[in-house]
Design a protein around this nucleic acid. Structure first.
Length: 296
DNA sequence: GCGACAG
DNA sequence: ATCTTGTCGC
Protein backbone atom coordinates (compact mmCIF):
# COMPACT_ATOMS: atom_id res chain seq x y z
CA UNK A 1 0.00 0.00 0.00
CA UNK A 2 1.23 3.47 -0.84
CA UNK A 3 0.22 6.77 0.71
CA UNK A 4 -0.61 8.90 -2.31
CA UNK A 5 -1.33 12.02 -0.31
CA UNK A 6 1.04 12.30 2.67
CA UNK A 7 0.34 16.03 2.50
CA UNK A 8 -3.18 15.28 3.73
CA UNK A 9 -1.92 13.70 6.95
CA UNK A 10 -4.38 14.25 9.82
CA UNK A 11 -1.99 16.31 11.93
CA UNK A 12 -3.69 16.75 15.31
CA UNK A 13 -1.56 19.82 16.10
CA UNK A 14 -3.30 21.83 13.37
CA UNK A 15 -5.66 24.58 14.40
CA UNK A 16 -9.34 23.94 13.94
CA UNK A 17 -9.45 26.32 10.97
CA UNK A 18 -6.51 24.52 9.38
CA UNK A 19 -8.17 21.15 9.88
CA UNK A 20 -11.31 22.41 8.21
CA UNK A 21 -9.52 23.90 5.24
CA UNK A 22 -7.59 20.64 4.81
CA UNK A 23 -10.94 18.83 4.76
CA UNK A 24 -12.17 21.15 2.01
CA UNK A 25 -9.08 20.33 0.00
CA UNK A 26 -9.59 16.60 0.60
CA UNK A 27 -13.22 16.87 -0.52
CA UNK A 28 -12.03 18.48 -3.74
CA UNK A 29 -9.71 15.51 -4.34
CA UNK A 30 -12.35 12.93 -3.50
CA UNK A 31 -14.13 11.00 -6.24
CA UNK A 32 -17.76 10.20 -5.47
CA UNK A 33 -18.34 8.07 -8.54
CA UNK A 34 -17.44 4.42 -9.07
CA UNK A 35 -13.78 3.85 -9.82
CA UNK A 36 -13.28 0.60 -7.90
CA UNK A 37 -10.59 -1.03 -9.95
CA UNK A 38 -12.46 -4.34 -9.66
CA UNK A 39 -15.94 -5.62 -10.40
CA UNK A 40 -18.21 -4.88 -7.42
CA UNK A 41 -20.41 -7.80 -8.52
CA UNK A 42 -17.64 -10.02 -7.23
CA UNK A 43 -18.56 -8.88 -3.73
CA UNK A 44 -22.12 -10.14 -3.73
CA UNK A 45 -22.46 -12.60 -6.57
CA UNK A 46 -21.15 -16.07 -5.65
CA UNK A 47 -21.63 -17.25 -9.24
CA UNK A 48 -19.70 -14.35 -10.78
CA UNK A 49 -17.04 -14.94 -8.16
CA UNK A 50 -16.84 -18.65 -8.86
CA UNK A 51 -16.55 -17.92 -12.58
CA UNK A 52 -13.72 -15.46 -12.02
CA UNK A 53 -11.91 -17.91 -9.75
CA UNK A 54 -12.31 -20.73 -12.25
CA UNK A 55 -10.88 -18.49 -14.96
CA UNK A 56 -7.91 -17.53 -12.85
CA UNK A 57 -7.30 -21.16 -11.88
CA UNK A 58 -6.62 -22.01 -15.51
CA UNK A 59 -3.53 -19.86 -15.26
CA UNK A 60 -0.71 -21.92 -13.79
CA UNK A 61 0.87 -18.92 -12.15
CA UNK A 62 -2.34 -17.41 -10.84
CA UNK A 63 -2.17 -17.15 -7.08
CA UNK A 64 -5.22 -15.78 -5.26
CA UNK A 65 -2.96 -15.00 -2.31
CA UNK A 66 -1.13 -12.26 -4.12
CA UNK A 67 -3.91 -11.23 -6.46
CA UNK A 68 -1.80 -12.13 -9.48
CA UNK A 69 -4.91 -12.16 -11.67
CA UNK A 70 -6.38 -9.02 -10.20
CA UNK A 71 -9.87 -10.48 -9.88
CA UNK A 72 -10.17 -11.40 -6.24
CA UNK A 73 -10.83 -8.24 -4.25
CA UNK A 74 -9.41 -7.90 -0.76
CA UNK A 75 -11.61 -5.91 1.58
CA UNK A 76 -10.42 -4.30 4.80
CA UNK A 77 -12.55 -3.44 7.82
CA UNK A 78 -11.13 -0.74 10.10
CA UNK A 79 -12.21 0.13 13.64
CA UNK A 80 -10.78 1.83 16.69
CA UNK A 81 -11.03 1.22 20.42
CA UNK A 82 -9.46 3.32 23.16
CA UNK A 83 -7.35 2.95 26.24
CA UNK A 84 -8.62 6.17 27.73
CA UNK A 85 -6.80 5.75 31.02
CA UNK A 86 -3.58 5.63 29.01
CA UNK A 87 -4.62 8.25 26.46
CA UNK A 88 -4.01 5.89 23.61
CA UNK A 89 -5.98 4.89 20.52
CA UNK A 90 -5.93 1.38 19.09
CA UNK A 91 -6.72 0.84 15.43
CA UNK A 92 -7.52 -2.66 14.19
CA UNK A 93 -7.73 -3.80 10.58
CA UNK A 94 -9.11 -7.12 9.37
CA UNK A 95 -8.64 -8.07 5.71
CA UNK A 96 -11.11 -10.45 4.06
CA UNK A 97 -11.09 -12.23 0.73
CA UNK A 98 -13.85 -14.18 -0.97
CA UNK A 99 -13.91 -17.91 -0.27
CA UNK A 100 -16.85 -19.64 -1.89
CA UNK A 101 -20.00 -17.93 -0.64
CA UNK A 102 -18.20 -16.88 2.53
CA UNK A 103 -15.30 -14.66 3.42
CA UNK A 104 -11.96 -15.67 4.77
CA UNK A 105 -9.75 -13.58 7.05
CA UNK A 106 -6.36 -13.24 5.39
CA UNK A 107 -4.74 -10.75 7.75
CA UNK A 108 -5.26 -8.87 11.00
CA UNK A 109 -3.05 -6.03 12.16
CA UNK A 110 -3.28 -3.31 14.76
CA UNK A 111 -1.41 -0.28 16.05
CA UNK A 112 -1.54 1.77 19.22
CA UNK A 113 -0.76 5.48 19.18
CA UNK A 114 -1.12 8.32 21.66
CA UNK A 115 -4.36 10.30 21.66
CA UNK A 116 -3.58 13.91 20.87
CA UNK A 117 -6.93 15.64 20.75
CA UNK A 118 -10.45 15.15 22.10
CA UNK A 119 -13.39 14.04 20.02
CA UNK A 120 -14.86 16.94 18.08
CA UNK A 121 -17.82 16.28 15.77
CA UNK A 122 -16.61 16.82 12.22
CA UNK A 123 -12.94 16.35 13.08
CA UNK A 124 -12.92 12.66 13.97
CA UNK A 125 -10.18 11.75 11.49
CA UNK A 126 -7.73 14.07 13.24
CA UNK A 127 -8.25 12.14 16.48
CA UNK A 128 -8.21 8.61 15.03
CA UNK A 129 -6.37 9.00 11.74
CA UNK A 130 -2.88 8.62 13.16
CA UNK A 131 -3.67 5.23 14.66
CA UNK A 132 -5.33 4.10 11.44
CA UNK A 133 -2.36 5.04 9.27
CA UNK A 134 0.00 3.34 11.71
CA UNK A 135 -2.07 0.16 11.44
CA UNK A 136 -2.16 0.44 7.63
CA UNK A 137 1.64 0.52 7.69
CA UNK A 138 1.57 -2.90 9.35
CA UNK A 139 -0.39 -4.45 6.48
CA UNK A 140 1.25 -6.98 4.20
CA UNK A 141 -1.88 -7.23 2.06
CA UNK A 142 -2.92 -4.39 -0.23
CA UNK A 143 -6.71 -4.05 0.19
CA UNK A 144 -8.83 -3.06 -2.80
CA UNK A 145 -11.45 -1.50 -0.58
CA UNK A 146 -11.66 -0.14 2.97
CA UNK A 147 -14.72 0.05 5.21
CA UNK A 148 -14.44 2.51 8.10
CA UNK A 149 -16.47 3.12 11.23
CA UNK A 150 -17.85 6.62 10.76
CA UNK A 151 -18.88 8.78 7.85
CA UNK A 152 -17.48 9.44 4.42
CA UNK A 153 -19.31 12.00 2.31
CA UNK A 154 -22.00 12.42 4.96
CA UNK A 155 -19.99 15.16 6.61
CA UNK A 156 -20.19 18.95 6.97
CA UNK A 157 -17.38 19.42 4.46
CA UNK A 158 -17.88 16.10 2.66
CA UNK A 159 -14.64 14.80 4.11
CA UNK A 160 -15.43 12.36 6.90
CA UNK A 161 -12.90 9.81 8.15
CA UNK A 162 -13.58 7.35 5.30
CA UNK A 163 -12.98 10.09 2.75
CA UNK A 164 -9.91 11.43 4.49
CA UNK A 165 -8.12 8.08 4.72
CA UNK A 166 -9.46 6.84 1.38
CA UNK A 167 -8.08 9.87 -0.46
CA UNK A 168 -4.74 9.62 1.35
CA UNK A 169 -4.39 6.01 0.22
CA UNK A 170 -6.17 6.68 -3.07
CA UNK A 171 -8.19 3.57 -2.34
CA UNK A 172 -11.93 2.98 -2.71
CA UNK A 173 -13.50 3.45 0.73
CA UNK A 174 -16.85 3.49 2.50
CA UNK A 175 -18.01 5.06 5.74
CA UNK A 176 -20.35 3.01 7.93
CA UNK A 177 -21.90 5.02 10.77
CA UNK A 178 -24.52 4.15 13.38
CA UNK A 179 -25.72 7.72 13.67
CA UNK A 180 -26.48 10.38 11.06
CA UNK A 181 -24.02 13.29 11.25
CA UNK A 182 -25.80 15.60 8.83
CA UNK A 183 -28.01 15.60 5.76
CA UNK A 184 -31.66 14.64 5.40
CA UNK A 185 -33.28 11.28 4.62
CA UNK A 186 -35.56 11.68 1.59
CA UNK A 187 -38.18 9.52 3.31
CA UNK A 188 -38.86 8.00 6.68
CA UNK A 189 -36.22 5.56 7.87
CA UNK A 190 -38.62 3.96 10.35
CA UNK A 191 -39.60 0.36 9.97
CA UNK A 192 -37.46 -0.47 6.95
CA UNK A 193 -37.16 -4.12 5.98
CA UNK A 194 -33.77 -5.79 5.71
CA UNK A 195 -32.17 -4.86 2.39
CA UNK A 196 -34.00 -1.56 2.02
CA UNK A 197 -32.34 1.83 1.83
CA UNK A 198 -33.31 5.49 1.90
CA UNK A 199 -31.18 8.15 0.24
CA UNK A 200 -29.63 10.86 2.39
CA UNK A 201 -29.24 14.17 0.62
CA UNK A 202 -27.18 17.20 1.50
CA UNK A 203 -28.80 20.18 3.16
CA UNK A 204 -27.66 23.61 4.27
CA UNK A 205 -25.34 22.02 6.87
CA UNK A 206 -23.26 20.49 4.08
CA UNK A 207 -20.59 22.54 2.27
CA UNK A 208 -19.17 22.22 -1.30
CA UNK A 209 -16.68 21.02 -2.83
CA UNK A 210 -18.55 22.78 -5.66
CA UNK A 211 -21.90 24.53 -5.39
CA UNK A 212 -23.58 21.85 -3.43
CA UNK A 213 -27.07 22.37 -4.83
CA UNK A 214 -27.07 21.17 -8.43
CA UNK A 215 -23.47 20.12 -8.01
CA UNK A 216 -22.19 23.00 -10.09
CA UNK A 217 -24.40 22.21 -13.06
CA UNK A 218 -26.57 25.11 -14.14
CA UNK A 219 -25.97 27.80 -11.57
CA UNK A 220 -29.57 28.92 -12.05
CA UNK A 221 -32.73 27.35 -10.83
CA UNK A 222 -31.69 26.68 -7.24
CA UNK A 223 -32.73 28.74 -4.30
CA UNK A 224 -32.58 27.95 -0.62
CA UNK A 225 -36.27 27.13 -0.56
CA UNK A 226 -36.17 24.57 -3.36
CA UNK A 227 -32.66 23.19 -3.70
CA UNK A 228 -31.66 20.23 -5.79
CA UNK A 229 -29.50 18.76 -3.09
CA UNK A 230 -27.24 15.87 -4.13
CA UNK A 231 -27.40 12.45 -2.52
CA UNK A 232 -24.44 12.03 -0.17
CA UNK A 233 -25.22 8.61 1.28
CA UNK A 234 -28.03 6.41 2.48
CA UNK A 235 -29.71 4.85 5.47
CA UNK A 236 -29.21 1.11 4.99
CA UNK A 237 -31.24 -1.52 6.78
CA UNK A 238 -28.69 -4.32 7.07
CA UNK A 239 -30.70 -6.31 9.58
CA UNK A 240 -34.28 -6.33 10.82
CA UNK A 241 -36.51 -8.46 13.01
CA UNK A 242 -39.82 -9.86 11.82
CA UNK A 243 -41.88 -9.27 14.91
CA UNK A 244 -43.35 -5.79 15.43
CA UNK A 245 -42.12 -5.27 18.98
CA UNK A 246 -38.40 -5.44 18.31
CA UNK A 247 -36.57 -3.34 15.73
CA UNK A 248 -33.09 -2.42 14.53
CA UNK A 249 -32.03 1.07 13.45
CA UNK A 250 -30.45 1.50 10.04
CA UNK A 251 -26.79 2.16 9.35
CA UNK A 252 -25.78 5.42 7.68
CA UNK A 253 -23.57 4.51 4.76
CA UNK A 254 -21.68 6.98 2.62
CA UNK A 255 -19.00 6.78 -0.05
CA UNK A 256 -15.51 7.69 1.12
CA UNK A 257 -13.56 7.77 -2.13
CA UNK A 258 -13.80 6.34 -5.67
CA UNK A 259 -17.35 5.17 -5.03
CA UNK A 260 -20.94 6.27 -5.55
CA UNK A 261 -23.53 6.38 -2.79
CA UNK A 262 -25.51 3.60 -4.48
CA UNK A 263 -22.53 1.26 -4.75
CA UNK A 264 -21.50 1.97 -1.17
CA UNK A 265 -24.94 0.80 -0.02
CA UNK A 266 -24.76 -2.24 -2.33
CA UNK A 267 -21.41 -3.26 -0.84
CA UNK A 268 -22.56 -2.92 2.76
CA UNK A 269 -25.61 -5.07 2.03
CA UNK A 270 -23.39 -7.62 0.28
CA UNK A 271 -21.47 -7.95 3.55
CA UNK A 272 -24.56 -8.29 5.75
CA UNK A 273 -24.23 -11.67 7.46
CA UNK A 274 -27.05 -11.64 9.96
CA UNK A 275 -25.58 -8.81 11.98
CA UNK A 276 -26.18 -5.08 11.88
CA UNK A 277 -22.59 -4.30 10.97
CA UNK A 278 -21.11 -5.55 7.69
CA UNK A 279 -18.53 -8.34 8.20
CA UNK A 280 -15.34 -6.32 7.64
CA UNK A 281 -16.26 -3.70 10.22
CA UNK A 282 -17.83 -6.19 12.59
CA UNK A 283 -14.70 -8.35 12.62
CA UNK A 284 -12.44 -5.31 13.02
CA UNK A 285 -14.55 -4.20 15.96
CA UNK A 286 -14.23 -7.60 17.62
CA UNK A 287 -10.50 -7.72 16.91
CA UNK A 288 -10.04 -4.26 18.41
CA UNK A 289 -11.71 -5.44 21.62
CA UNK A 290 -9.63 -8.60 21.60
CA UNK A 291 -6.34 -6.73 21.30
CA UNK A 292 -7.43 -4.08 23.74
CA UNK A 293 -7.86 -6.72 26.43
CA UNK A 294 -4.19 -7.61 26.02
CA UNK A 295 -3.13 -4.06 26.66
CA UNK A 296 -4.40 -4.08 30.24
C1' DG B 1 -27.58 33.29 23.21
C1' DC B 2 -29.41 28.72 21.15
C1' DG B 3 -28.90 24.87 18.43
C1' DA B 4 -25.98 20.69 17.20
C1' DC B 5 -23.08 16.94 15.28
C1' DA B 6 -19.67 10.24 13.42
C1' DG B 7 -16.52 7.95 17.36
C1' DA C 1 -15.73 5.75 22.19
C1' DT C 2 -15.95 4.15 27.44
C1' DC C 3 -17.85 2.82 32.28
C1' DT C 4 -21.09 -1.97 33.22
C1' DT C 5 -25.68 -6.34 35.16
C1' DG C 6 -29.22 -7.74 34.04
C1' DT C 7 -32.81 -8.34 30.93
C1' DC C 8 -35.92 -8.77 26.98
C1' DG C 9 -36.68 -11.14 22.67
C1' DC C 10 -35.28 -14.13 18.91
Amino acid sequence: MTVHHPDFAPDPSLSRAEMESLQREIARSAVFTDDLGFDPALLDDPIARATAEAASDTDETADPEDRADGTVPLVAGVDQSFLLDQDRALSAIVVLRPAGSEWEVVERVHAVTPLEIPYIPGLLSFREGGAILAAVEELTADPDLYLFDGSGRIHFRQAGIATHIGVMLDAPSIGVAKKLLCGDPVASTEGLAAGERVAIRANADVEGPNDIAGEGSSSEGHDAADPDWPTIGSAVQSKQYDSPNRHVNPLYVSPGHRMSAATAADVVLAFAAGYKLPEPTRLADAYADEVKAEYR
